[in-house]
């Protein structure tokens, strides 16, 4: 009976285990046994967590100004484990963005973006942007005071972008001002458009890794006699599974200790005294307060553009300076700047 069933299956799905293994079995360089080199898998895992919890929340969320806040309240207070899944989603987002940034920093400081992997860096940058946008749209869905005013401010910032800004704002809000059709827009961006984009980008991202192979690194203290690679399956998979479980435990812990709250409901007539975006926008928020709107927007755009083009800027710098490490020094300065501005925004009220 079992053999007949197996035969039936094999005939319809003519893929054997061995084939599947060979397909997935990329040899993994040894340095990936160190966790900070495996940070690319972490956002991917968290992304899955976000999809699962996001789908769960979508069963109850109602994206309209009259219902959004109440449905969030309902999820948080009335549905069984609603507070937990909402907190998981919130903390998952925080962790995911943090992991993406750490992953990017690791890639940057090990100069893993250099020839021939420039395009994958660009894909990665696209992933960073999409992730940040997903975070932003998600935060706006809660429809509490800060969500509402965050979206309002962001829309007007994009308005300051020359030429395309007005169109971007109109597209984001579905009109010239925040209106009753804005929330559905933000929702469909958050729950369909952006996640799909992320999935497609990740596929390309991973495909590039498979095509190029993981950047090889050798540490001076390593034993040369030992094999320099190990199997993805099952060895690296086990590592990723462990990381996944650790992440779940961490997420559950912070979700229980610092559950997601609901602030006061959005009031389009009263801007709260203290208004802050989510932490990952602290940098740009502080930047905005330091300079005029146009300069801040333009300079931010310039910086983002430079980040996209860094593999080529880096090679130009290397040619210019003759040193291999110019990017690393710039990176250190940039990191201090990022951390500094974030902390500054975090500690002050205005």
């Amino acid at each position: 009976m079992m053999t007949r069933l197996a035969a039936w299956w094999r005939e319809r799905v003519p893929v054997s285990g061995v084939q599947l293994r060979e397909l997935t079995n990329e040899p993994v360089p040894n340095h990936l046994k160190k966790w900070w080199f495996a940070l690319g898998g972490t956002p991917a895992y968290l992304f899955v967590v976000q999809i699962v919890t996001g789908i769960l929340l979508a069963f109850y969320y109602q994206p309209a100004p009259s219902t959004a806040y109440e449905s969030i309240r309902f999820i948080t207070q009335d549905v069984a484990y609603g507070w937990y899944f909402r907190s998981l989603h919130k903390w998952g987002a925080t962790f995911m963005i943090a992991a993406v940034i750490l992953h990017q920093m690791r890639v940057y400081f090990t100069c893993a973006y250099r020839r021939p992997r420039e395009l994958n860096w660009v894909i990665g940058m696209c992933l960073l942007m999409t992730t940040l946008l997903t975070g932003f749209t998600g935060y706006s869905l809660v429809y509490e005071q800060l969500s509402y005013w965050g979206a309002q401010v962001a829309a007007n910032i994009s308005n300051a972008v020359p030429v395309v800004g007005g169109v971007a704002k109109h597209m984001l809000l579905g009109g010239e001002v925040y209106n009753e059709r804005t929330l559905p827009r933000l929702y469909i961006l958050h729950a369909a458009v952006l996640p799909t984009t992320i999935v497609l980008l990740v596929i390309v991202h991973v495909a590039f890794i498979r095509v190029h192979g993981v950047t090889e690194l050798r540490f001076p203290d390593e034993d040369v006699a030992k094999p320099s690679h190990y199997d993805f399956f099952p060895d690296h998979l086990y590592t990723e599974l462990s990381i996944g479980l650790v992440l779940m435990i961490l997420l559950s812990a912070v979700s229980t200790i610092f559950p997601a709250m609901i602030g006061p409901k959005a009031d389009p007539l009263t801007t709260p005294e203290v208004i802050k975006p989510e932490w990952f926008f602290y940098v740009s928020f502080r930047w905005l307060k330091l300079f005029s709107l146009t300069f801040a927007v333009l300079s931010t755009g310039f910086i983002v553009l430079a980040m996209f083009a860094w593999p080529w800027i880096d090679s130009a710098l290397r040619r210019l300076t003759g040193s291999d490490d110019a990017s690393v020094y710039i990176g250190i300065v940039a990191t201090f700047l990022l951390v500094g501005l974030t902390v500054w925004e975090a500690v002050v009220e205005h």
């Binding site: 699962v52 009335d78 549905v79 899944f85 779940m248």
Partner: peptide, 15 residues
Amino acid sequence: TFAMMAGKFLYSGGG
């Protein structure tokens, strides 16, 4: 356990 909780979340419909 996680899946069971998710099931309860979907089933309960809340208060």
